[in-house]
Design a protein around this nucleic acid. Structure first.
Lengths: 230, 230, 230, 230
DNA sequence: AATGAATGAGCTTTCATTCAT
DNA sequence: TATGAATGAAAGCTCATTCAT
């Protein structure tokens, strides 16, 4: 198996094998505590072999970010595509985010490390990659917002700013949730946020439809919605 | 005692001297890239002397967090105390946060590292410290919210959940701003957020007073409000 | 108390205070694991003060050896002086040694360290001090042997060699006993040795007197003579 | 396996290479003054490589003890096997010991350090290893003694105690010799000891055969038998 | 392509010693 | 004399990376 000349597609397959093993290791131990040997063990490869596929530890770390986040991006794109009306699209985006974050709750600290790493790195390349990713995600959101505005479901508001705000809010809530020990339902926290924000921005048209539900959410909050960590 | 060179108060003063030098170094290089020697150089002390005041590197790192965040907390407490009506209190809290974050924009990545560090650490002590700090800050916010509700300026809403949400949002916006290269005004971003949220939660009483202003903010957004990094 | 000008005799008293505290610390932790601070704590003095009395750690270590061994030497001299007939003298020497070693069993590893230290030290001074001490002890033994020879209780044998041999044997048995976890009576081991050696060297005169006793000792051995460690 | 550079047997060979270089360094500088770098230099390896073969400095130190002492043990076993009659066996054991010690005279301080180390160590493992080694050696001696007793060459005496005593005496003489600066012949010292002890324990059968020789030894002593240090 | 032995720069921490007071 | 804060050399150990096979 190891003897055969590895065709390009095999090479890419092995890169992915490595990166997926690396996610778990980086996530559970953190960048600095993760040894190349740990990753090699996880993929069942020799240490040296990793260097055939990634130039160095940092390169592999970045690859982990890319691999992981593009999965998230794909889901988000899919969520938008799967629905037609913008309200459903907006809901689907939230659902996707919650699902993604809850699924990868153990990877949470990684996100912080990616960010910290990017802000620190001498080269801008990592930071730029993160920004680009965020940009694409924010465009996704902005489009939905615009559609809702077109349909007069949403007040007139700078949709680019709103999309960026949403992105920040989303990460902020996630962060808060992780630091709080995942002691409540992330989904409920997101819905609470949606109610808070929505009640200000939706037009009368939409408001009348969801008024009772929103009212209830706001009064209940999300802190007492238990969440079971796996 | 007469013979002692350094009285207890001097000892504390030197601890602070060290911690304040350490903030800058940790902030600019990050925890792992910061060498004890770097900090020693910054305080003009010998490496060994640092160990007279802090048991190890991590201890010093935690002290940096405590020192920095309690300054923030103090400002927040002051902001609340300085004002009487809850609307002004709420504004003051936002102002304080913005000022604090803008002032310490270069320290931003530190915050990420604190969080990552806490989530990673084998001992819970750091995480608990962070949670406690967040708890105290959220109590501060919840009280203001309650006061606004009492005055019928704010809709009825679970104020604890709201306070936690606000905390998350606040950090999230800050994060977003840092990652975005501090390319817009953090203050404007906060105000935009305030408008978004406020327009949903304020009662008619308040809404009528600020309607025009809020409307304007929402339409302008915050992305094109230049901010000069120092 | 600390304020008064310290007269020479006070100075000497404090040197002894320090050295006696140091014995315990060195004995229980070993030379390298003993910190000057440990000793300072034990004497209730400041670290720096030790250096007023001893030039450095090694100097203090040597002082410990001198102090300890000269106590042993004094006991040995006393043992010889207290008795008149050489057989009693010889017995008293053994008794003294056993008592000294048993009393200071916990100090045992120190002796090894002294020796190792001396053999290693760049300067010969420590080694010479040890040799001189051994010399004086061996002279003590040789004189007793000669007296026994004069009285025809002991065969004609090179008494200097015998004294040196006895010294080595004595230390060797002690060492063995310490390594064996002090699991038998050191005194019985010494007596066994005395019987073994004595039965070869004593003349008929003496042999006839102690034959039965010696015979019994030899057959019993010493391994099953329990010894209670404190 | 085909690709592996170092087969298991090579690995063991390198472990031995290292340990043998380490003996010399430890012996000449002592445990604490020996730096890992010194040993690395001696084997012509990088510091880090040592850690591929031994977990830490202490592990290497213990390996030195094991390696060295098992060589000694092997020689002792061989000495016993090579001879048939117990008198020759006993002589061979002494010869072997003397040869071993004389050959490794420069390693002498190491023995003290091993003992001190073992007595100090928090874990008993080293001490136990030393005791086991001593046990095996004492069994070897006890058997020879028993054989001599069977042949009525040796008086009836507790042979286990005697074997332990011999071990102690042997180390004690060696120690004395080292401290005395190896200024006389170790072999002669051992022979003197043999005469002293033997003359008491041998039966008439043997005594008549060696009486003159023993008598001469005892009168000559061993102090004036020059020994040339290499 | 795969391996894993070898490397050595690098860093935290310790602690004997100094010296201003 | 006594103190204890300050010092900084020193060393064990780690681990990303290299490279001969």
């Amino acid at each position: 198996m190891a003897r055969t000349k590895t065709a390009p597609e095999n090479r890419e397959a092995k890169r992915i094998l490595i990166v997926e093993a690396a996610i778990g290791v980086f996530a559970s131990k953190g960048y600095h505590s993760t040894k190349m040997q740990d990753i090699a063990d996880a993929v069942q490869l020799a240490k040296g072999t990793l260097y055939e596929y990634y130039v160095d530890k940092e390169d592999l770390f970045l690859a982990v970010y890319d691999h992981w986040m593009s999965k998230y991006e794909q889901s988000m794109i899919l969520a938008v595509e799967e629905h037609i009306d913008p309200v459903s699209k907006a809901d689907a985006l939230i659902d996707t985010t919650v699902e993604f974050y809850e699924l990868h709750a153990t990877y949470a600290p990684l996100l912080l490390e990616f960010w910290a790493h990017a802000l620190r790195s001498t080269s801008d390349s990592f930071l730029i990659r993160i920004r680009d990713m965020k940009k694409r995600l924010s465009v996704l959101g902005a489009e939905v917002t615009k559609q809702m505005q077109t349909l007069k479901l949403f007040r007139h508001i700078d949709s680019d700013s709103f999309a960026v705000l949403e992105l920040g809010i989303s990460d902020g809530i996630f962060l808060q949730w992780v630091i709080d020990g995942q002691s409540y339902s992330l989904r409920e926290a997101y819905k609470f946020r949606q109610s808070v924000i929505g009640s200000g921005l939706m037009t009368e048209t939409l408001r009348s439809l969801v008024a009772t539900k929103v009212q209830k959410k706001l009064q209940q909050g999300f802190l007492h919605t238990p969440f079971k960590r796996k």
